[in-house]
Amino acid sequence: MSESYRVVEPQTGVRIGFGDVWQRRELLGMLFQRQIAARYRQMLLGVVWLALEPMAQLAMLTIVFGFLLRVDTGGYPYPLFAFSAMTGWWLFSKTLMSVAGSLQDNIGLISKVYFPRLILPLAATMKELFDGGVMVVILVGLSMLYGYLPTAKIVVLVPLFAYAALIGLGVGLWIATVMVRFRDVRPMMGLVLQAGMYATPIVYPATLVPERFAYAYQFNPMYWVVELSRWALMDKPVDIAPPFFWSLGFVCVTVYGGLMVFAKTEKIVVDVQ
């Protein structure tokens, strides 16, 4: 029987619906393209701006922490030390912000057309991955400038940054869910992310953290992203400790839970907007 039925009824169960997303993958692609094209078209210097903002921030960090405070990086040049960590952090935090806002920013679409809502955070993540890719190119260029020629280890950056984006996606889905009802969350996010940045060894080395906190400190999944990207680029030694596996587990649970709560909330987002 080739006839298809669509049944509309009160929502009960929760389904993540990857199958539906796959069926509408053309839409996912279009939304991704739309974000990229729209951004780079309205600003001729789109790519330049993309790089300029982190470079400016990097310059400031270098002046304050590298030049004035003379943070001990263990012999690595400070700009590269900071930038290799910043790249992953930026990917994570920007993905988190985009995913968190994906329902609200697209309420115009959501309230007028039906499509699997999960496409929105996924398109947002894809866009951040695209921007992240540009940053990685800059990062590799910078490391070559400082004499760290890429080795085979550089391949690790691909799964590593995908992991950073996945963390952003997972946490972002939770926040998107909360933000449907509590819009006040948005201004708080920047503050929390900034605190998170200082809780991760980005502008300073992890060795500065007092010994008794060092173990707990490593439960932060971004700690591992940061340390492993330094390892991949500059061969900075890293010990995989049990907290790494714990944090990996947390991330998996967060992402899965995020997908579930998102699937539940997407059904009411039109009604409570």
């Binding site: 669509r6 509309v8 009160p10 959501i110 007028k112």
Partner: peptide, 25 residues
């Protein structure tokens, strides 16, 4: 909105046969 799937009904049920297209805007 309910028939096009944008929002779910609280009670009742609707059945639409075939490909459904909607243009709410």
């Amino acid at each position: 909105k309910i028939l096009s799937g944008v929002t779910a009904p609280t009670t009742g049920k609707a059945m639409l046969r075939g490909r459904v297209g909607s243009l709410l805007e």
